[in-house]
Design a protein around this nucleic acid. Structure first.
Lengths: 338, 338
DNA sequence: GCCATCTGTGCAATCGATTGTCCTAAATTT
DNA sequence: AAATTTAGGACAATCGATTGCACAGATGGC
């Protein structure tokens, strides 16, 4: 009665039987006299009995909870991914505990400790912009807690992962710009400790090389996802002696801010500078010119990752790797020909 | 050894003492011989002992976890609020379990059951667009689990709450439009079962009345936050015989889509139609014309709500009500005079 | 009619902590 | 020196479930 809820013990006492019999009657998989079982089920229903999850957690050493460790919920990609994760998890009877690293390695490591303390049954991870090692994940693996990386994966650890074809799509995006006649293509690249950022940059460079265009240092801008610097590096780019005629942005919101700066400087999009975004936010269709972007299926990545994690939790110990293809969505901001 | 972690029992056996002594040595608040205590602490440190949270949860009937029940993480207001919630919760040693209702009453009720089963110590709630009653919350209150509502509050229940001055800011926004010379102001109003939506509409209507402008039925559009209908109702509005000369949108993203539709129809903003958004997204500054909006301090609402909840959990049973003021941010989309 | 089998149920250990009660030996008082 | 206090620690119950083992009574085989 302490928490106001009735327990298996209460039912046992009320019926004058032992609590083991009650437990067996409720769990259905043991020999209990049909009449006894009926009485137990009846009373349990009447009293609105629900098993105490805390007791089960302790006894069974699991919590039916999965941890999610992402950079930021305000990043729309992750906000959408959470949707997919929760749908899959909830359908399977799991709760979801979410932590944000705020793109900080130290916070990521601390979050991981919290999730460990909370005894989550598994963890979904997208690493922070600062993360360049994996020892903090090893602690979980040593304790047999499965981890599934999604989007911002770690290539070092042999875990399940859900990832996108960053190399291929960056290659395709860059080729698209070239096909529109662009010759001086700049890119805003993410932190190079991230697998995705490296691949994106590689795809960009390989596309340039394939078409015999020079890869120029000053056309490659380093960004760390933090807002606030966009105006600065955009200004730097358009003031270069050899002004770029296209910019591959790091995401759509940065792209839209760049467009704003470019237009303020009297340049036209796409005629003077074409712009290519990333993430295909809804808003891409409503800005002027409409923004070409890359669609990422964030929701699907989340649900696939959750599904793989549940697989691992249920004992399927073969790590699986799942590719979710992204897709170039061409709009006016890169439309010069055809 | 079952989960690989060492327990208080292991330490007791290794030192040849009882586990109660170990427990008392670790908790520091009881008479344990200084030497014994030292040996225990030493060994605990050496073995990297951490108390099993599951055992503590059962024993103490609490989980150091708070539940958060919101409509959607893809709604940026809530994504930001989560940031504030997590910062406060984590600093106080609490984990955060997040559920999304997807604006559905049924899902909201089901989420609440999950949180109850998970034995969260308290819950932060922003109700769904469909929610028009409160009996599902009463179940938690009956079990003495504190609830704090934020933003989309319930006025019926006597719980702590963090809310904004929707009436006042809608009044102020509408007066601002009037001050710019607008006479035919339309509004896109949210579901009227929501306290916030009702107040916003009331503020709008009272401002019109104060300035002797008519409140016209066909200037009031009902929206349910779902995307996809924006283009339709915008077209309807601009095709009215008496076309509105200003529209008070339901949020910034809807406002930007409206601007797109309006411009496509050859009308100018703000000269033909002024637009007022809601939420003051970063992007407001980068669209053309820059969008006037209302700043909501989502992060602060989240952290204040979390702080009030922790108060309640710690036993301060006086429900508190906290107002977070919003702020009109004037930009070009409503700038006609001065 | 005796032993073996089966059915249904209870007892008690277990998960890993906390905490009230009690016991022993040393220290203090008189 | 006897009596009383006190410190330090052990024992066991508790939180609410699950589950191996034992045991009683009924049934069946020979």
């Amino acid at each position: 009665m302490s928490s106001g809820s009735i327990t298996i013990n209460d039912i046992a006492k009320m019926l004058g039987i032992s609590k083991s019999t009650v437990s067996r009657a409720l769990s259905e998989h043991s020999d209990v006299n049909a009449e006894t079982r009926h009485k137990v089920l009846e009373l349990a229903r009447k009293l609105n009995y629900t098993p105490n999850a805390l007791a089960l957690n302790l006894k069974q050493q699991r919590t039916n909870t999965i941890g999610v460790l992402i950079p930021e919920t305000v990043n729309r990609f992750f906000a959408k991914a959470i949707g997919g994760i929760q749908r899959v998890a909830n359908l399977a009877g799991y709760n979801v505990m979410i932590c944000q690293s705020d793109e900080s390695f130290v916070t990521e490591r601390s979050n991981l400790r919290s999730l460990l303390t909370a005894h989550v049954d598994g963890v979904l991870v997208s690493v922070s912009a600062e993360t360049d090692r994996t020892d903090h994940f090893q602690v979980l693996l040593d304790k047999n807690i499965p981890i599934v990386f999604f989007d911002r994966i770690s290539e070092e650890l042999n875990t399940s992962r859900v990832y996108t074809d960053n190399y291929e799509i960056a290659f395709e995006g860059t080729e698209h710009l070239i096909s529109q006649g662009c010759q001086r293509i700049a890119i805003v690249a993410g932190p190079q400790n991230l697998y995705n950022s490296r691949n994106r940059l590689k795809g960009y460079m390989d596309a340039l090389r394939k078409h015999n265009l020079p890869v120029k240092e000053n056309y490659i801008v380093q960004s760390h996802f933090r807002a606030g610097s966009v105006e600065d590096y955009t200004r730097d780019l358009i003031n270069l002696p050899q002004r770029p005629d296209a910019i591959f942005a790091i995401n759509d919101f940065a792209a839209i801010e760049m467009m704003h700066v470019i237009k303020k400087n009297g340049l036209r999009i796409p005629q003077d500078i074409a712009i290519l975004g990333f993430n295909n936010e809804t808003i891409c269709r409503f800005v002027e010119p409409a923004l070409t972007s890359i669609d990422m299926s964030a929701y699907d990545m989340g649900s696939e990752a959750a599904a793989l994690l549940l697989d691992q939790i249920k004992g399927n110990r073969e790590p699986q790797k799942k590719l979710i293809k992204s897709r170039l969505v061409i709009r006016e901001s890169t439309h010069l020909k055809g």
